[in-house]
Amino acid sequence: MRRTRNRAMTRVATAVLSTALILTGCSHPSHTSHPSHTAHPGSTQAADGPAPTAPHARHIVLKGAVNVRDLGGYPTSDGKQLRYGVVFRGDALGKLTPDDLSVASKLGLKSVVDFRLPLEIRTDGADRLPKGASAIPLPIDDTGLYERTTAAIGSRDPAVQQKALGDGKGAATMRRIYRTFVTEAGARHQFARVLDTIADGKELPLLFHCTSGKDRTGWMSYVLLRAVGVPARTAEADYLLSNDIRKTADEKTREGLKKAGIMRDPQLIVPLQEVRKDYLGAALTEADHRYGSFDAYLSKGLGLDAGTLHTLRTRLLK
């Protein structure tokens, strides 16, 4: 009985860490999307499908994944627009249902980039991919976040949890993680590989994801949008949209932790569950500090030459 209870505790604690960028935001067999979100026909049509009428229209509603979206439709500063049905962002796909796979098959995906670490995949499960899609593993290091947070939450000790996550420590941890997206050579290499793969065009349509689809995926989406000329404010809005889309699932995770007696104060994990302007700002400030500007980060930090950037824009814009 004790072993069963310990395994259950571990599963719930593990579920929480997803929201911190490591594990899935909800460990149940299926996720629940925000009730107002509906898939727009343009999300599953060809590259030149109709433009959505609202940001949520890009959201592809699935039972086994919360935060899957089409990046199409965003306008650039020079009056162009991202094509639909070419690049998608998402969270972990390991719990897709048969109906989900049917929906995903209509996207025509050729490749799915997975930023998760091997430990995340072992815990949450390998992606379930629609026919015709190949996996491209590009793990990005979490700097030990998983082990530290698991230990704190799994302890069931409010004092330990407060010490690890309280008094602004959760948010500080997230800002530190975002800075590593810029400072760590391994992270820069993986982000650059995604952009190179998109520019090459052979693996399109492509979806990239991490576990919750908000941090590694959020930075990748922001970088891609800015690289093709989408204004910074628009790219930021796409980044922040994860809070709205993940809201219901994240609330259920906190409720579950409290009911299970694992956390007395599950609000401690809110900074890990959310995306915030200052998290994004930490990465952008680091890019400016190290490279002088965002454009210099693209060229010097990610090694993207003018030809690759031109091809990327030609491939994605109409």
Rank of each mutant, 00 (worst) to 15 (best):
S36W: 02
T183E: 15
K110W: 05
A232W: 09
Q273S: 02
K202A: 08
S299Q: 14
D99W: 06
T53V: 11
D141L: 13
A47Y: 00
A192T: 10
R290N: 05
G108D: 02
L206W: 03
V160Y: 06
R315E: 08
A20I: 02
R128Q: 14
A199T: 14
E184F: 14
T97A: 07
A171S: 15
A15N: 05
L316F: 00
D196L: 14
H209K: 07
G303Y: 02
P137D: 10
G292K: 11
G307M: 11
P29I: 08
I121N: 10
P98T: 03
L280I: 12
R175G: 15
T76A: 06
K131T: 14
E286D: 05
R193F: 00
T10Q: 10
H37E: 12
S27V: 07
P50G: 11
M220L: 05
Y178K: 02
V16N: 06
T173G: 04
D250Q: 13
K259M: 15
Q45D: 01
L204I: 06
T19Q: 12
H56N: 10
L71C: 01
H56F: 04
T150W: 07
H31P: 01
K63S: 08
D238T: 03
N243W: 04
D124T: 02
V160T: 10
A185Y: 08
L204C: 08
T253P: 01
K300F: 14
T14R: 11
T180F: 15
R5Q: 10
K258E: 14
A65I: 01
V87Q: 01
G42K: 00
I245M: 05
A8E: 15
A92T: 06
P75K: 07
A51H: 00
D48Y: 02
L302Q: 04
A249F: 04
F115S: 02
S242M: 10
G144I: 08
M9D: 09
T24Y: 13
G256P: 00
A172R: 09
T183I: 15
Y279F: 09
A287P: 07
A227G: 11
A282M: 03
A232D: 15
T308Q: 09
D91E: 11
A152I: 01
E236S: 13
E251V: 06
R226P: 08
A8S: 12
M1V: 01
R89P: 13
R7S: 13
D48T: 02
V86Y: 03
D114V: 02
S221F: 07
Y222R: 01
H40D: 07
L204S: 04
Y239A: 01
T173K: 04
K277T: 13
K259L: 15
D278I: 05
T10W: 07
T180K: 03
Q45A: 08
L62A: 08
H37R: 12
D100G: 06
A249E: 08
K277Q: 10
K110L: 01
A185T: 14
R148D: 01
A133I: 11
L138Q: 02
R226Y: 09
D305F: 14
R276T: 10
L82K: 00
T10I: 13
G49Y: 00
L302W: 07
V160K: 09
I140Q: 00
V68T: 10
A126S: 14
S155A: 05
D70C: 01
I177E: 00
R3Y: 03
Q161D: 04
T211R: 04
T38N: 05
D278S: 07
